[in-house]
Design a protein around this nucleic acid. Structure first.
Lengths: 366, 366
DNA sequence: GTCGTTGCTGGTAGCGCTGTCAACGATCCT
DNA sequence: AGGATCGTTGACAGCGCTACCAGCAACGAC
């Protein structure tokens, strides 16, 4: 049943120190800063610890040192594929380090975020990763006053609290529309769900690109606050078609919606891309596999998470990165669903302030 | 920059006690067992705490009380949709409770699991949630010796370490095959990826069902250790077809593979379900939206996580559930992709020892 | 009236570790 | 050679909270 066993044989630092023939404080130092010990004592403590199977008591450490080795992570959703990739990056980066991850879900509510932030901060985390740049005023103040490094992820913008890593959703959307223009599409609709700040900025990018071309029409835009889903993609597309039957392409705020649009086209026997072009956002794995393959804007989610955690840990340990704000860019991955109405292909469009920082996107699966 | 600020104005329990005019220990009791206080002192402490904005120091509490309020969760993957639903349930259940979640990713390695378990156990967690029933001997021993409640999730089997919640993957696979039989399919292939223990048991269920019907052929089975993906579904299906061109249905170990198979059929212009029936596993949201809609085995992932965490918390607080092993069942959701070769429809098949415990599956998104 | 009993409260003593500072010998510079 | 500096080590004093046990009033039973 696993309920028995009362006192586990606790090995304290003092025991290790005794066995090693050093003072407790020296043993303590071994675990925090081994370089500070002479080689002789270092090996003595090391073998003593191993022999006794010593595991430090984190609570005591936290109490005595007035700081924890916890990195708080605030993300809006646990199930959105986008965040699970980011999370995986964060966990991968934290692995092997002394830091552990404390994750909380804001459910896309900045009020909830504020509440969680208060909770986190009270425990004096070693560092904090927060999503986006749209915090409440109160949250912002807490973050600025916080006594630990902070990374804002998912997007970049002015006035970072501390560090920042992401890309411009606005520019990415503009690049997607530019691609559609280049392929000869003109009447381009927008479907968006959830409409969190990042989706909103994609919409803004879409609107500006369309306006720049003198092609914007309010009826081309269909959005909802409802959480995204494949099914919803179909429904929103249906709305869009009802408003504008002559549509020749759709830019979807994410790939789930794009897949839903694709299925809806199939249901209605609308040819893709002959009659309707489709572009998604995020470049989830299935996009390359769909029939026809679906164009999307690739974002470096895994790397974003991994780099954010790495930067944070570096900063915690006193090595602040030379570049506190990192633009990871994006890339329009051109596939069949948006292919040219005129048969001319061109290279992939890239964007972001640091396109050279781009790396291959790891598989979405682990 | 957020790096400044040295000493946050720390309000200790002692301050609260002083303001309330009680001893620190009484104030302490207020937070742990308010019932033990007289009503007068209770309200005094409460308002004092609120006035000062007191937040308990968890490290000190853990050190003094020799236990933490941390629930350790070990799952094989962060990105698999299946686990993100379970996780969401766990987080939802833990919210509002005093417990916080400590998550780690075993990457489908039981050795890694063992390592993490050792790490977790050393910090004396309040409770533990582990995935599956295939631990190493060492892990098993540690779990049995652990001084906290434990829930095994995702599947049920004999000899629970403590509590257990899940369903029979074997039975679920058999039900899927029974459904295909009922629809007139005979040459049914199996495609599986990753081949973790649960997928293996689905395969076992498939094999037994096929053998029972005298229809099993080794060449109907295509599996790989590679992580699952939509693309992989298409590739495995291609292999399968090469081995057995006369196949009339495919049972996919998960929905990603099923979607890949669907796309591959489309690519090859194979009619679904006329020429090939498809059944997936998990019933992810997109299955209902695909064209044709895809049959799948629905599993109660969110509820599994939520119930597991709820049971665990109850057990931690001394209220052990009357039913330590819970079968959440499954349900074959019949859709177009497997529909009858003979036009007769029948109600959905259900399974599991506690089908009445079945609840509506919450949306996969939050 | 005395003696438990119960309900509430407080004092004492750490939990296991680390921050700070001082001390020591060895090394280096002038 | 004398003093300064560096590298290494240890003593001490808590960090903020709770376990444990003692105390005390109020109450009822004998």
């Amino acid at each position: 049943m696993g309920r028995k066993r009362t006192k586990s044989g606790k090995i304290r630092l003092a025991e290790v120190a005794e066995l090693a023939g050093v003072s407790p404080i020296t043993a303590s130092r071994f675990f925090r800063n081994p370089e500070a010990l002479s080689v002789a004592k270092r090996t003595r403590v090391e073998s003593a610890a191993k022999e006794l199977g010593y595991v430090p008591n984190l609570a005591a450490r936290a109490l005595a040192s007035q700081r924890t080795e916890v990195i708080g992570v605030l993300i809006p959703s646990l199930t959105n594929n986008v965040f699970s990739d980011v999370l995986r990056g964060i966990y991968d980066a934290s692995e092997g380090s002394r830091y552990s991850i404390q994750l909380s879900n804001t459910r896309y509510s900045i009020l909830q975020e504020e509440k969680l932030l208060r909770l986190f901060l009270a425990q004096k985390p070693a560092g904090l990763i927060v999503t986006g740049i749209d915090q409440t005023e109160e949250s912002r103040a807490m973050l600025e006053a916080a006594d630990c490094p902070i990374v804002q992820i998912m997007e970049i913008g002015p006035n970072p609290v501390d560090m920042m890593i992401g890309f411009s959703h606005y520019d990415a959307a503009r690049a997607a529309i530019a691609h559609l223009f280049a392929q000869g599409h003109r009447k381009i609709g927008f479907v968006g769900a959830r409409m969190d700040p990042r989706v909103q900025r994609r919409l803004d990018g879409y609107v500006s690109a369309m306006k720049d071309a003198g092609l914007f029409e309010q009826r081309f835009v269909v959005t909802t606050a409802t959480p995204t889903s494949v099914t919803l993609g179909g429904a929103l597309f249906t709305d869009l078609l009802a408003r504008e039957p002559d549509l020749d392409a759709v830019f979807c705020a994410n790939d789930d919606l794009a897949l839903g649009v694709l299925f809806e086209c199939r249901r209605r026997e609308i040819g893709v891309p002959e009659q309707i072009g489709i572009v998604g956002f995020n470049d989830l794995e299935f996009m390359a596999s769909a029939v026809p393959t679906l164009t999307s804007v690739r974002t470096n989610r895994y790397e974003m998470g991994k780099t954010a955690a790495t930067m944070l840990i570096e900063a915690i340990e006193g090595r602040r990165p030379e570049q506190p704000v990192l633009d990871l860019g994006f890339r329009v991955i051109e596939r069949q669903s948006s292919s040219s109405r005129h048969p001319d292909n061109r290279p992939a469009l890239s964007g972001g302030a640091a396109p050279n920082k781009m790396v291959a996107l790891p598989s979405s699966h682990d």
